[in-house]
Amino acid sequence: MDYAGLDYRNIRFPVDRPLTESERAARYKQESYSNASPMDFLSVIKLNSNSIDLVDRWYPIKGFNTWFGICVVLVSMGALAGIYSALFFSNRTAPIETVDWIGVSALTPLFLLLTLGGWWLIRTECGRFTHYPMRLSRKTRQVHFFRQNGTVLTVPWDSLFLTLGESKSPLSGTTYDLRAHVLDDDDETVRDSFSLGYPSPLGNAESIDKFWAFLQPYMEAEDGVEKTWHHLKENTGYLVPVDNRREGWRWSIARSFMLGAHWPYLQLLFSPFLGLNALGRMLAMSTSKIPQWPADVERESQPEVNDPYVLTWRDNGSLGWWELYWPLICTVVGVGAFVGVIAWVVSGLWR
């Protein structure tokens, strides 16, 4: 999936470089409004008159690296066990020949490297943070970004260079995000970068226009708080339930299947993939820490007494049949089908 910019073992967006012409051409200026229809793409954690919290670009797809990494580890270790079992513990009558040793010598480091690669994939999500939030403070006009190492980057909203970001992934192809660059004093050199908005792996360039049309008024329009509140109440239905908590198993299943929310038959068709993603997501969430903002960031972001524009996950409606129970059935069917196929393959190999 699209894990571009994940700052784990220094996999990041390119920095310490000049802005490109394409970035300049696709810039979103703070004072410019979009005519696109606003969409939040299920990225808001909470809202009040002083600040809005957003999830990171990796949150929607969390779980993929976990289950895929586990599969890589299990297949690699299983292959090693099969090779050595056939070589030393089977009832073979022929002596071990040189070609057997050559094969073992070549395959052992290969499968060990695959095992390490699978473990690396697991560790990009497990034992870290449940998510990496961003907080935009309308009150102080600051943007706070929770980094993957637990530190917080704070940058003035007006100093950010915002542009259309593009990333390429073998599985998801070209994806787009609202890229935020922190520039040096020369207003030319990129010193840091993060993704301020990410529609989904299925989003396109126009999706970023829609996200900008949602986000920019909150920070700049006189009635931006009211507009944002009404949009979330009337159009979204759900805020992400990760404010000072881990998401529950119900949300892990619902969120994993939301990419196909309008196509229930496709959810069933891709249920092995989506169901495994839900299980991987649950494991990743259960083993990860909950991010905590520094005390000064929390103080400046607290809602005023009787603030009429407070929204949190507690204001969400209940997950219904198509949001939870149908995905739950698909998860059981999909995971069952996957396990059945694996069992059939393994039994055939051991005959």
Rank of each mutant, 00 (worst) to 15 (best):
T130Y: 08
L178N: 02
G165I: 07
R141P: 00
A180C: 11
E188A: 12
A180T: 05
T124G: 10
W119N: 02
I122T: 11
F146K: 07
H131Y: 09
W157L: 01
R179V: 00
L178I: 03
L183V: 06
Y176A: 06
H144S: 15
V155A: 06
T130M: 11
T163G: 04
L114V: 05
Q142F: 02
L183T: 03
T174R: 14
T115V: 14
R123P: 00
A180V: 06
L113V: 14
L160G: 01
T175I: 01
K168C: 03
F146E: 02
L171K: 06
T140G: 11
G150Y: 10
W119I: 15
T108W: 09
H181Y: 13
T175M: 03
Q148V: 04
T174Q: 08
S137E: 02
L114T: 04
G127A: 05
S172E: 15
P109W: 11
L171T: 12
T124Y: 09
G150W: 10
V190P: 08
R191F: 00
S167H: 12
Q148E: 15
T140W: 03
F111D: 07
T124K: 14
P170A: 10
L160T: 00
G117E: 00
D184F: 04
V190L: 10
R128C: 02
P109M: 10
V155M: 02
W119L: 15
L107W: 15
L114H: 12
L178R: 03
E188W: 03
T151I: 01
L121D: 00
R123N: 14
A106F: 15
T124F: 07
V155F: 00
T174I: 12
P156K: 06
I122R: 11
L183G: 04
T189A: 09
